[in-house]
Amino acid sequence: MKQRIQTAILALIVFLPLVIYGEWPFTLFVYFLSTLALVELIQMRKLSGHVIPFILATALVWIILLQMPSGAIPGVWFTIIEAIVLIVVLLLGYTVLAKNTFTFDDAGFMLLAAIYVGIGFNYLIETRAAGLNYIFFVLFIIWATDTGAYFFGRAFGKRKLWPIISPNKTIEGAIGGVISACIVGVIFHLIYPFDFSMIIILGVTVFISVFGQIGDLVESAFKRHYDVKDSGKILPGHGGILDRLDSLLFVLPLIHFIHFVS
Rank of each mutant, 00 (worst) to 15 (best):
M1V: 01
K2E: 14
I5M: 08
Q6H: 08
T7Y: 02
A11Q: 02
A11L: 14
I13Y: 07
F15W: 13
F15Y: 08
L18K: 11
L18F: 05
G22Q: 08
E23N: 15
E23P: 04
W24R: 10
F26C: 05
L28E: 03
A37G: 15
V39G: 01
V39P: 00
E40D: 11
H50Y: 11
V51H: 06
V51S: 09
A57Y: 00
T58M: 14
V61Y: 06
V61D: 12
L65Q: 04
M68R: 13
S70W: 01
A72P: 00
A72K: 09
W77E: 04
W77S: 11
E82H: 04
Y94G: 03
Y94I: 10
Y94Q: 06
L97D: 01
A98K: 02
F102G: 05
T103G: 09
F104N: 09
D106C: 03
G108R: 00
L111W: 02
A114Q: 13
I115S: 00
V117Q: 10
L124C: 06
E126D: 12
E126K: 15
E126Q: 15
L132C: 04
F136V: 09
F137A: 07
F137I: 09
I141R: 06
I142S: 08
W143S: 12
T145C: 14
D146T: 07
D146N: 04
F152K: 04
G157K: 10
K158N: 11
W162S: 14
P163K: 12
I171N: 03
I171H: 03
G176R: 06
G177K: 06
C182R: 01
G185L: 08
I187K: 02
F188V: 11
H189C: 01
I191R: 03
I191S: 03
I199P: 00
I199Y: 13
G203H: 05
T205M: 00
F207L: 15
F207P: 05
I208S: 00
G215T: 11
V218T: 12
E219Q: 05
S220A: 07
F222H: 07
K223V: 00
H225Y: 13
D227Y: 12
D227P: 01
V228F: 10
I241T: 14
D243K: 06
R244C: 07
L245C: 10
S247Y: 01
L248Y: 12
V251D: 12
V251K: 07
L252A: 05
I255Y: 06
H256F: 15
F257E: 13
I258S: 09
